[in-house]
Nucleic acid binder design. Structure first.
Length: 292
DNA sequence: CACTTGACCTGTCCGC
DNA sequence: TGCGGACAGGTCAAGT
């Protein structure tokens, strides 16, 4: 999925556009993708959008919250009212001047699962090819408290120090470091792309067991995680196949990635051929020289 | 208990 | 060209 930087990119983009809008209704195309009482959202205004780990929260009036998890292939694309009017015309490709194919012209598409319709005519499309993602409607504390409370610290918060990382990660002493930082109870929001990049940034072999790390390693890992996530946000996220932001545009972090998706290519630092292994069931690329 | 693997889905790409 | 298998950004449940 979308990992922390992708969800954060959507949060920033959506927040500017739908806070203050009033929801009219929801169209549910795939019942499995939505849980909770859809009537709760009727005619309620959006007052805030937040993110915790990889979960997006759309907060409405009267303590109603819509939670969204995009899992592997989820998208949240907003089509504003002004753009709906020219939908399907040739001009749509010129809007914004984006060189990539403009997916906004063809909503809904066959992976559209849920459509949120606002009172001004804007529509928010939840698309999800593989149907792993979900939308839940309910009360944040009483319905979702348990879901949210298990997450580890937010790695971009000021109080996320290397000591805190060390303390949290030591609960997974005998797993490879890359697997440990993907555990959402250890740190919130790191997935397969940014875990691989964080290990490279830290110059740590992703197979190294957490129990074998020194304090110096924890410091490097801390810096490596934070850098990977910040760079991800800076470049608008990673679009391997599906990710697009709230405007339907791709992110370009993978152009700057050191290891993810670069198996058999040369290390950008030392020119050694990168290697691919499997850790915790996930593909993992690393540099056998830089990451000793 | 700690850790690993399989399942959930759909689509694409690669080798034979 | 066709076909089977591996793989893809995540997270649970079940298995070891």
């Amino acid at each position: 999925m979308p990992e922390l930087p992708e969800v954060e990119t959507i949060r920033i983009g959506l927040g500017k556009k739908i806070v203050g809008l009033k929801l009219l209704k929801i169209d549910i195309l795939t019942p499995k993708s939505l849980q909770g009482n859809q009537n709760l959202i009727e005619k309620k205004k959006v007052i805030n959008i937040w993110r915790r780990a990889k979960v997006l929260g759309i907060e409405l009036e009267n303590n109603v919250t819509i939670l969204v998890h995009l899992k592997m292939t989820g998208q949240l694309i907003l089509i504003q009212n002004s753009k709906l009017k020219i939908k399907n015309s040739n001009e749509v490709r010129l809007v914004g001047g984006h060189p990539t194919q403009d997916m906004r012209g063809s909503m809904p598409n066959k992976s559209t699962r849920v459509i949120f319709i606002f009172s001004d005519g804007s529509k928010l499309f939840f698309n999800d090819q593989r149907r792993f993602g979900w939308v839940k409607i309910g009360n944040l504390k009483s319905d979702f408290g348990h879901l949210i409370s298990g997450f580890g610290p937010e790695p971009l918060d000021k109080d996320f120090t290397w000591e805190l990382l060390k303390q949290r990660i030591l609960r997974r002493k005998s797993v490879p470091v890359k697997v440990a930082i993907m555990d959402q109870e250890v740190i919130a929001g790191v997935g397969n792309i940014y875990a691989a990049e964080a290990c490279f940034n830290a110059k740590l072999n992703p197979r190294k067991k957490v129990g074998d790390l020194s304090d110096q390693d924890f410091k490097s890992l801390h810096r490596g995680v934070v850098k990977a996530l910040r760079d991800g946000i800076k470049h608008g996220g990673s679009s391997r196949a599906h990710f697009v932001n709230a405007d339907g545009d791709k992110g370009y972090f993978l152009d700057y990635a050191f290891v993810y998706g670069r198996d058999k290519q040369d290390c950008k630092l030392c020119k050694t051929k990168l290697e691919k292994i499997k850790l915790g069931g996930r593909g993992t690329v690393f540099c056998p020289v830089c990451q000793n």
